[in-house]
Design a protein around this nucleic acid. Structure first.
Lengths: 194, 194
DNA sequence: CGTCTATTTGAATGTACTCAAAAGCGGTGG
DNA sequence: CCACCGCTTTTGAGTACATTCAAATAGACG
């Protein structure tokens, strides 16, 4: 495992010279996680930005009744983790776990700060990354209000077809904000009507 | 109306020298809008980043049944508008309207690009702005799944007490993803039980 | 004061949830 | 290779949260 795919990813947004590439390669910590293992646990202060190289992770919130709510899935090329915890240094309310054997790159908080200070175009990279994520998140909020559960499920399948191979239905239900039982009933209706 | 309050805002995040301040002042377009007036209309390509100086705006999505869904409110110091439309150059799905007589600063897309290119610390400013917004948006998504409507309403009031003076209840209901009638019933229950 | 819109109220309805149980499915060991 | 175990998914009945529709009341503004 190496950082090549990540550097390819960055280069889609901003340019890097050789020195910058070398620096980036030097600060990422590669990690392999098996299915079910944690990358971050809620309650702890997040120390790493997480970049997925292969496999699939999910980040979720556990509420006062011990019910899990999936915040996001992350497959190859995606960033995940708890931005609030890492930037403000407060305990995280999210946990991140592997849904399949996965390879991830960890970017320690201090290294990211160094990266941003030394190479201003990395500010640009993260600015654009966050800008795009913001659009997606706001769309998800509005969709949650404007569409019924069956429409949200159909949209989800269209938008993230590659996730079906990794993600059990109960977590898709959680991501959509419904119960697994109800998702099952939605799926039956969709099967019967076509 | 001037850009002073906006520059104060930026300086909370990054440093600016005199030249930079002057440039910023030169590129913003001040605009006064009366209650009910549009700043952006859905269907049009957004050309400006919108910064609120005073008053209150709301940005909302109109669905296929002509129902409005409030995406966000913005009072003094906040940015709003449709990031997706302005960055990708596609027609906006959101409209932005004044909930009260307001003063706003418009940052034209081209000027923002120039600002970011000339002054890298402005990349940092927007990176941090978006980073914080991302945390808030994800929290809102999870809250929508983890909490019942009455809890979300209580949280909203605690988080944005200053909005009560501007925002009719029906828009708060929309922001929370419920009907005005149901919000009214929630409010009655809250009154009776304490 | 009258008009317009926002808010409240109530009854009927529907979408989605809870709980309990059965069925399916993948892995493991005999 | 089959039997069993644990976990996921499905099913069904009963329930609750939230919506729809219609109408009354309250508030804001000219």
């Amino acid at each position: 495992m190496n950082t090549a795919s990540f550097i390819t990813n960055i280069k889609k947004t901003v340019n890097l010279n050789e020195e910058e590439e070398k620096f980036i390669q030097s600060i990422f910590v590669p990690l392999r996680v098996k299915q079910g293992e944690f990358v971050e646990r809620s309650g702890e202060i997040t120390r790493y930005f997480i970049h997925v190289q292969s496999g699939c992770l999910m980040t979720y919130f556990t509420d006062k009744d011990a019910l899990d709510h999936v915040a996001q899935f992350a497959t190859a090329g995606w960033w995940t983790g708890d931005l609030h915890s890492i930037t403000k240094g407060v305990p995280s309310i999210y946990s991140t776990r592997a849904l399949a054997d996965s390879e991830v790159l960890l970017l320690p908080k201090n290294s990211q700060e160094e990266l941003l200070t030394k190479y201003p175009q990395m500010e640009r990279y993260f600015r654009i990354l966050y800008q795009n994520a913001l659009v997606t998140h706001l769309h998800r909020i509005i969709q949650g209000h404007a569409e019924a559960a069956d429409e949200r499920y159909i949209s989800f399948r269209e938008k993230y077809p590659s996730l079906e191979q990794y993600v059990p239905l109960k977590y898709i239900a959680s991501y959509l904000g419904i119960t697994p039982e109800f998702l099952s009933k939605i799926r039956r209706r969709l099967m019967e009507n076509r």
